[in-house]
Nucleic acid binder design. Sequence first.
RNA 1: GGGCGCAUAGUGUAGUGGAUAUCACGCUGGCCUUCUAAGCCGGCAACCGGGGUUCGAAUCCCCGUGUGCCCGCCA
Length: 584
Amino acid sequence: MKLLIDKIKPFFEKVFGSLGLDSKEYEFLIQTPRDTNVCDVCIPCFSLAKIMKENPVKIAENIANEFNLLLQKEINVKALNGYVNFSSDSRWIAKKLLFENYSFFKESQKLKILIEHTSANPNGPFHVGRARNAILGDALVRLNRDLGNEVIAEYYVDDMGKQVGILSWALENISRKEVNDILEHNGIDNLNPIWKQKEDHVRVRWYQAANILRKEKPEIEDELAEIIRKSEEGDEKVLLQFNNAFQPILDGMLETLAKLGIKYDSFTNESKFIIDGSVNKIVKNLEKSDLYGEAENGAKFLELAEKGVSGKSTKFFFQRSDGSSLYATRDLAYHQWKWSQSEKLINVLGEDHRLQSKQVSVALNELNIKCPEVIFYAFIKLPEGKMSTRKGNVVFMDDLILEAEEIALKILSERKGELNKDEVFKIAKAVASSAIRFNILKVSPEKGFTFKWEDALSFDADSAPFIMYSHARSCSINKKVKSLELIEDNFDISEIDINDSTSRLLRTILRYEDAIEKSISENKPNHFCNYMLELSTSYNLFYRDSPIIKNGELNAFNYKVSEYSRKLIHRGCNALGIIPLESM
RNA sequence: GGGCGCAUAGUGUAGUGGAUAUCACGCUGGCCUUCUAAGCCGGCAACCGGGGUUCGAAUCCCCGUGUGCCCGCCA
């Protein structure tokens, strides 16, 4: 409700000045109420009671009276239960939105932001748990872009070290037949033939087989250690070999994410920071820290016991005894580099990285490098327990998407319609991808949840299709108006009678800015999900009560409101990665 | 053993010091000759337990309970 707050601020200064209060100090009191049906903006007077030594109900009444002397009739001010409640005239809102092109985020500061998300090790297909990262990250990218920020979506590629090393070794040393035999003996399902062309599904089997083989033949460890060591020294030949091993997997993973509308602007390889020497510089600088310590064998660490880290080990190791670097050290160099690209950093990490992220923050402080904002999300479990790529106990995102498309197709086939096959297929894909994203986004990131097929595939009221359906309706109306070539009569907004549901819709539209800003400032896309559900509900009520075409004639005001809503729902869908279809 | 998350109707969720605790599923009763019924309207039902701070606590603090994650010279 920025529009209204900006409107009343100058009067607020006068009123509070006349009460002998510093208006700047109390500006924060102007707020949007929890229950938006009560009023548009309010000032709770409870905290003033102590200073003014008076009953908050009385204070509210006095303040309301003062405002009423100053404000024109387009803002209604009333005192209620110790609150000063402001309600704007619906015609005034309509005028600002429909005729004066009030635009959102005009005064917001625009930033260059780098959002690093997903960054999953390229060793196998996405399962639903890992995908939460990508879906959250992509939503943050889109929300920030909606506000006008310039955003880089970053994927940090683990192209060295143990995991890729194992994969690379497996592809060179284990035959297809051996892989199949090993996995069969260990109860891992066969490759689903649907995915036999998709290298993430194919190659992960080598990774799984190698992990089983390592337990049986310890001598493999020596071979592994050798190539891993070389990769960490930046050996070009080994890194190229690693790259050839994981790149087809990464491509397969990105193909899956693309089905969900997720794309990246930039990929950065971990090895970059070994090769360019920045890791070495980080090590040198960390050695100067007061927290620096060395183990007996020469491994280097920071002692974090005094920095709020506790547990069995309080040491943060950044160099092994053999002189090689660790993931965390490279991460420090990576952060330094990221700051050279942007003014704000956001990382999306699983809750298992909480400690590691704290260690990185302390180390960054020691290096005089700013810390990123980090958003943590809890894991998605299966009813039978944790998901694990190695154990093959997962729901693949590719399978979930396929299943969702089939259900959408089934629903479409049950409904009468004159859509052709291509359109039906396109709609099913859009519904599936949007619904999956939304069902994950609508839950607050720090809350864990258990994956259930029926919830993930729910297309009911609390879902993306609900929002998409409102949009499709508004499109349908627009098409009808166009096809009937109805004429938009001129009208005087001050003469229009605005009903309750239209008034509610106009107010909901006005809260778009607040919803985006809240979601961004807290890095919680679920807030905006909620808002989009409210916007759609408001539109549905308006649709019920306010005919746009009646007896073959166009209601120009209702049409303008509908069109404004249509464009805003479209915009909001893009901000969440929901595909706003024109018909469904 | 220690640290860090989380706990709201039968189920899932919103809410980060204020007005009658949000929305959905569920159960239940209604609305399609009228701009897409994947919709709309009505009813049922909840703040883990105990202390504290405050004029006021689901929200902040302490203790407990349950649950998840972490405590590698892995990533």
